[in-house]
């Protein structure tokens, strides 16, 4: 049985709509026009215990809405969700104590106080026994090497430092399910790596299940073997990351450095790679040669472009 089970999930928002301009604004005071937005439009998937899954899609694809339904903040308009056997929007304590939601652009620690004080608050809210709490806290603090940061007021920390203490704060109750919404947004490369490594460690150490959205493909490549891609609220792809490349990027890139210093770059369909390489080697004097899959960013772009054509 999956830790996360999603069946035909839908979320429809009703949003007021009007033309630009003062006239339209006045009219909408009295007669509102509503438009239905299908943010999530019938997606289904299942996640097994201990999996780390990348949840991808362009802005507005419905990722955050889905995460909010999974963490019990939003009621689905249709379909079914179960996480750890619970229906999230019932917000049962047993469920809330076993999951965590981290949003990269939001801050949940006390701004003016050292993080250690906020951690105490979490101890009270999650009803953690003192010994267990201290042990977990020290373990996580050490894992991220933030011993001196947790003693400074949060407002004095840099964005990256803040994210590190933020993540530790969200994991003190040792949740079994992690929903991470852009956990590395705005961080520099080193800091991204650090957070990434930490998520991997946590997953390995506690066997937690992780669903992660990110715009940084490096995050996804480093952490997730499986990805779920959604666009316009619909599921586009669910499977291994390599399979995604295989399916949506039928071209490989051949790069060759020639004897005269010139570089040649060719986009070739997969089944013609060996022929093209042979031909190149036969016709020119080649010093160096590489054959590569396109960068995952390009693949993802390709996925969305394909979808757009289908819809149009």
């Amino acid at each position: 049985m999956g830790v996360v089970e999603v069946q035909g999930l839908e979320k429809v928002f009703r949003v007021p709509e009007r033309e630009a301009g003062i006239g339209a604004a006045t009219r909408s005071l009295f007669r509102r026009q509503w438009r239905e937005v299908r943010a999530v439009d019938g997606i289904s998937f299942e996640i097994e215990p201990g999996e780390v899954v990348g949840f991808l899609g362009p802005n507005g694809a419905g990722k955050t809405t889905t995460l909010k339904m999974l963490s019990g903040l939003l009621h689905p308009s249709g379909g079914e969700v179960r996480v750890l056997g619970h229906v999230p929007n019932r917000r049962e304590r047993d469920y809330l104590r076993r999951m965590t939601l981290v949003m990269g652009n939001r801050n949940q620690l006390q701004w003016d106080l050292p993080a250690l004080d906020s951690f105490e608050l979490n101890r009270a809210i999650y009803r953690l026994p003192v010994d267990e709490f201290r042990q977990t806290r020290d373990e996580l603090v050490e894992l991220l090497d933030i011993g001196d940061l947790v003693r400074k007021p949060v407002r004095q920390l840099s964005l990256g430092e803040r994210m590190k203490v933020e993540v530790v704060g969200s994991l003190l109750h040792l949740p079994q399910v992690l929903f991470l919404d852009e956990p590395t947004i705005g961080l520099d490369v080193t800091m991204q790596k650090r957070i990434r490594g930490f998520v991997a460690d946590y997953n390995a150490r506690y066997g937690a299940t992780v669903l992660l959205t990110s715009h940084y493909m490096a995050d996804v490549e480093a952490l997730c073997r499986r990805v779920i891609v959604i666009h316009h609220g619909r599921l586009l792809f669910d499977g291994q990351l390599e399979a995604l490349t295989h399916r949506f990027a039928p071209l490989k890139t051949i790069e060759a450095v020639l004897a005269d210093g010139e570089t040649v770059s060719l986009q070739v369909p997969k089944d013609e790679v060996s022929g093209a390489t042979a031909q190149l080697l036969a016709e020119r004097e080649v010093v160096d040669l590489t054959v590569e899959d396109p960068p995952i960013e390009d693949v993802i772009e390709q996925v969305f472009a394909t979808e757009a054509e289908v819809v149009a």
């Binding site: 903040l73 917000r91 304590r93 469920y95 809330l96 999951m99 939601l101 939001r106 949940q108 999650y126």
Partner: peptide, 16 residues
């Protein structure tokens, strides 16, 4: 939209 965090806590939201 920051109310989200108060609602993901295993404690009565009105209390929090």
């Amino acid at each position: 939209g920051k109310l989200d965090f108060a609602l993901t806590r295993p404690e009565d939201a009105q209390l929090i």
